[in-house]
Simulated assay, not measured.
Amino acid sequence: MEQLDALLGLKNSISKNETPKLLANENTNSGVEKLSEAKFVAFAESPKPFNLDENTKFIKLETSEPFTLRSIYFAWLLRDSSIADYIQQCSEYGIRNLTFLERTDLISWLEGSAESEHVVGLETKETGKAEVPTREHKVGEKSEQVKWLQDNSRVVSNHNTILHGAKPTNFLSLRKDVLDYIHMNKSSHGSAAEDADRSAKRRNRDPIILLSPSASSLLTMHNVKKFLEEGIFVPPLEAAQAAGGGRGSGLVTVNHKSSKSNLGTMRFIVVDNTENFKPDYWNRVVCVFTTGQAWQFRDYKWSEPHQLFHHVKGFLVQYIGDAPHPATRDWNVEGVFVERVRRHTDREVVSQLWDKLERWVENRWPLLNGGRR
């Protein structure tokens, strides 16, 4: 029997509803129950077991670094867990975790999806032995692959593909806008009218972040600027009292210095309602913070949660110790966990939030100015 690739062995076992056998060593009689006790895994179609710590052909796109079979199998075993629970258990067992999108893509592929941009150089019976492409080769071919997929693919209506989305999208237009924005800041000032005109143009293309107007929201118009700019979470009631009460400003600007040198300092517009939205404003919405209540989206361009979080990045802010909200499992929404009293972890939490939003923006977002989604 010809030895299969480890990824194909796992995928075939899943398709046939067969449970792989965990082994303490290469001896097929040394079965164990826990993944933490196992060194090898055996699939029914494979003549010999696979080392769980060997690299697979499922890679991280940013670095082309492969994930081990242990990471892949653990992600599959915890496929029904929330992303927060999954990451926590990865930390407990010392297993490298996949990001939300990587895990979603992996599960979709293991469950039968024909394509995954994370799987490279996989040998199949149909294609023969495939060469593992270098990162330069992969990037060079990516546009042709995406074009072919767009022309020849159809939407598969399963839970995971709806959450994951159809394809990655280049975000070069936002980079251009940001560089123009930086250039305008550095250029000498003209007349007051010219300065006002430049300011209006910048506002008209700044990315937009939407907050939930729910009374239960931990992130409000009173505390969002301090949270996103300074990395300090002020409980909403305390922030409202400090501001003199009321609903707060109808619009807040948040400046963020990107960790990516080519993006520089970006400015975001934050609002908690869409009453004054023009149709083209939706092309600029990059992120929605939710409390998990679907009524928040009633007047949105995309009122159905799964559709909405296919188009925008979703976050849900909770206190550490609270059970993960079902929305972080059922929708394409990531949990953001803050301490109730101690503030020493806030800056790290916000830094991770920005990293996730930047990756989303770069990898998946279409044109802000007149783009189509």
Rank of each mutant, 00 (worst) to 15 (best):
L22W: 15
L22Q: 04
L22M: 13
L23R: 06
L23M: 13
L23N: 10
E26T: 02
N27D: 14
T28H: 09
T28C: 06
N29D: 10
N29C: 14
N29A: 13
N29G: 11
S30C: 08
G31D: 15
G31P: 07
G31M: 10
E33D: 15
K34S: 12
L35K: 04
L35G: 08
S36W: 05
E37A: 08
E37G: 11
E37I: 03
A38I: 00
A38K: 06
F40P: 04
V41P: 01
A42Y: 07
A42D: 08
A42L: 14
A42R: 15
A42T: 02
A42W: 02
F43L: 09
A44T: 09
A44C: 04
E45D: 14
E45K: 14
S46E: 06
P47Q: 03
P49F: 13
F50E: 00
N51V: 02
L52Q: 07
L52C: 14
L52S: 03
L52G: 00
D53F: 11
D53S: 15
T56V: 04
T56W: 09
K57G: 08
F58T: 03
F58E: 02
F58S: 06
I59P: 07
K60Q: 15
L61G: 03
E62C: 08
T63K: 10
E65M: 05
E65K: 15
P66W: 04
F67Q: 02
T68F: 03
T68C: 04
R70Q: 00
R70G: 06
R70I: 12
S71I: 03
I72N: 02
Y73N: 05
F74P: 04
A75V: 00
A75M: 00
W76L: 05
W76C: 05
L77H: 00
L78I: 01
L78F: 09
L78M: 06
L78R: 00
D80V: 04
D80N: 15
D80F: 12
S82I: 00
S82C: 00
I83Q: 15
I83E: 13
D85W: 09
D85N: 12
Y86E: 05
I87T: 14
Q88S: 14
C90H: 07
C90W: 12
E92N: 13
E92P: 01
E92R: 11
Y93I: 07
Y93H: 14
G94Q: 13
G94R: 00
G94N: 11
I95H: 11
I95L: 06
R96F: 01
R96P: 03
R96W: 01
N97S: 10
L98V: 01
L98E: 03
T99E: 14
T99H: 02
F100I: 07
E102Q: 08
E102S: 02
R103L: 05
R103G: 01
T104A: 07
T104K: 06
T104S: 02
T104D: 07
D105I: 09
D105H: 13
D105Q: 08
L106R: 01
L106E: 00
I107F: 04
W109C: 04
W109A: 01
W109L: 02
W109Y: 02
W109M: 00
L110N: 04
L110V: 11
L110D: 01
E111R: 14
E111W: 12
E111P: 09
G112N: 12
G112V: 09
S113H: 14
A114E: 08
A114P: 12
E115K: 13
S116M: 11
S116N: 07
E117C: 07
E117T: 10
H118K: 01
H118Q: 11
